[in-house]
């Protein structure tokens, strides 16, 4: 039976939460008239990164080759950093702290980004060590 890597599953779940969240519970501000606010780009970034994360996560779950796994872990680290930077750096957000993008989207991206980085770093360490032992 093919070996399933738990860290890949965790990353896939985080990515799915990010992609779904970007369009639902983590969505940025929307004006009363339905028009997009300045922070709409942050939601798009998070959604796109989430989709990419799902592919990375699936790859880490299923692929056994050490070199590929190390590359995927490095890519996952980059994904985590981009998630942290999406609201505010990669894309502007509103200025008032009481705005939704400041109260929900940015903190949500922070939590997800940190969890992704921790999981990716752990995967990288494990993949690197397994190579040494072999």
């Amino acid at each position: 039976m093919k070996k399933i890597h738990v860290s890949g599953i965790v990353l896939t779940v985080l990515a799915a939460v990010q992609a779904i969240g970007a369009r639902t519970f983590l969505h940025p501000c929307v004006h009363e008239d339905g028009s997009l606010a300045a922070c709409a780009g942050a939601g798009d970034w998070l959604f796109g990164l989430g989709l990419a994360g799902i592919l990375l996560g699936l790859g880490l779950t299923l692929l056994p080759v050490r070199g590929i796994r190390l590359a995927l872990c490095a890519a996952a680290l980059a994904w985590g950093v981009c998630t942290l930077l999406a609201p505010g750096t990669l894309s502007p957000i509103c200025m008032m702290p009481s705005m939704r993008c400041q109260m929900v989207t940015r903190p949500g991206a922070l939590v997800l980004g940190v969890l992704i980085l921790l999981c990716a770093a752990g995967s990288l360490v494990i993949a690197a060590r397994k190579g040494k032992r072999a």
Partner: peptide, 13 residues
């Protein structure tokens, strides 16, 4: 800390 600090605005609201 990871959850409460960033989300303090939401918690307050």
């Amino acid at each position: 800390l990871l959850v409460i600090l960033p989300f303090s605005g939401l918690i307050e609201a």
